[in-house]
Design a protein around this nucleic acid. Sequence first.
DNA 1: AGATTTTAGAACCGATCGGTACAGATCTCG
DNA 2: CGAGATCTGTACCGATCGGTTCTAAAATCT
Lengths: 202, 202
Amino acid sequence: MDVAGKTPIGRPRGFDADAALERAMIVFWEQGYEGASLADLTSAMGITKTSMYAAFGNKEDLFRKALERYEEGPAAYVERALRQPTAREVATAFLAGSVGASTRPGCPAGCLGVQGSLAAGEAGRPARDTLAAWRDKGRLHLRDRFRQAVDEGDLPPEADPGLLARYLMTVANGIAVQAAGGAERDELEQVAEVALRNWPPT
Amino acid sequence: MDVAGKTPIGRPRGFDADAALERAMIVFWEQGYEGASLADLTSAMGITKTSMYAAFGNKEDLFRKALERYEEGPAAYVERALRQPTAREVATAFLAGSVGASTRPGCPAGCLGVQGSLAAGEAGRPARDTLAAWRDKGRLHLRDRFRQAVDEGDLPPEADPGLLARYLMTVANGIAVQAAGGAERDELEQVAEVALRNWPPT
DNA sequence: AGATTTTAGAACCGATCGGTACAGATCTCG
DNA sequence: CGAGATCTGTACCGATCGGTTCTAAAATCT
């Protein structure tokens, strides 16, 4: 039985849901969860509120889906960094990717995972918690990767994988804040370089 | 002529403006500029909207005054750090103070200067810009202090004061994000220690 | 005392918030 | 060709947004 090939019954949707989600991601990235109104979102997406609700659920669902999109797109550098052969290369690629994503031309400055919602009122709390969990997931992936590096002798046995992961994530978060405040790409590349100067020797 | 001693004419205000501002600061710190509604603020301040407008202007003015209050209170560690005798001590005190302020018991986790407004809709843009300028001011103070350190031979001549300042501010911003996400004080103290391992020798 | 100045409280303002109900349009299936 | 299913646009929902108006109360001034 063909699961995907069939044309669905009923009137087909008149817009590209993927493209609309991409637009929504940009708006959330630029204005944050609470700062992005449904009017802002749907106007950027080129659809009406009704279509948005039918296609994505509600504002919170839309935000989560925009975050998934962000993870696969601008934040894909995390996965790429984790696949580097040595811990040092992982760290370097991670910070370089963080700088790149936070200062990407044509995109909002900073990181959706940080500025999407850091402090929020009652209404924005689920979105804030979603982002905190998302950042934590990345941090734990880094930690696991550095544990593996210790096992492989790629990091000295006395290295603390959890601490190194948190250190890197802290610098990346700081880079995102700096970028949101207008810091330029080359300035942040220098910061990343300084941050890696004290990386444990292999 | 006594400028301050006189009792002002008219009905005296029935609340402590300083205490009310302190409460407002906490609310902004916890919920961000856009996430804090006037109802949230005035209820925490224990006054009505009318009294708030008479005493502080409007929401934006209140936010600016809450930031000044934050600078004199929880963020006073910046000034203290800048007065340390050596560049290394300045850097150490700055990061230690950042960790302390971001994980202070009884206060919201994180830093008002970061999570107060990082990304915002149209309405919150002035607040966001105010915070970005505030963070930049701190960064430039650090830079000037490190320039002085180079002049005094306290930092090597090849040290880059601007880069060191931006590096420290980046780490401090990252610490604030980590704290907002639930990181504990001792974890962030270790991060600060790692971040200072490669500080230029005297 | 009486005039003046300021505060406090409640009621109210238009605008906007996130979210829906409904009707018409457009598709597949029989 | 209907019949049933799904999407789209409009109009609307109650609640809340930041901010104001108006009246009464409480103080100092002459």
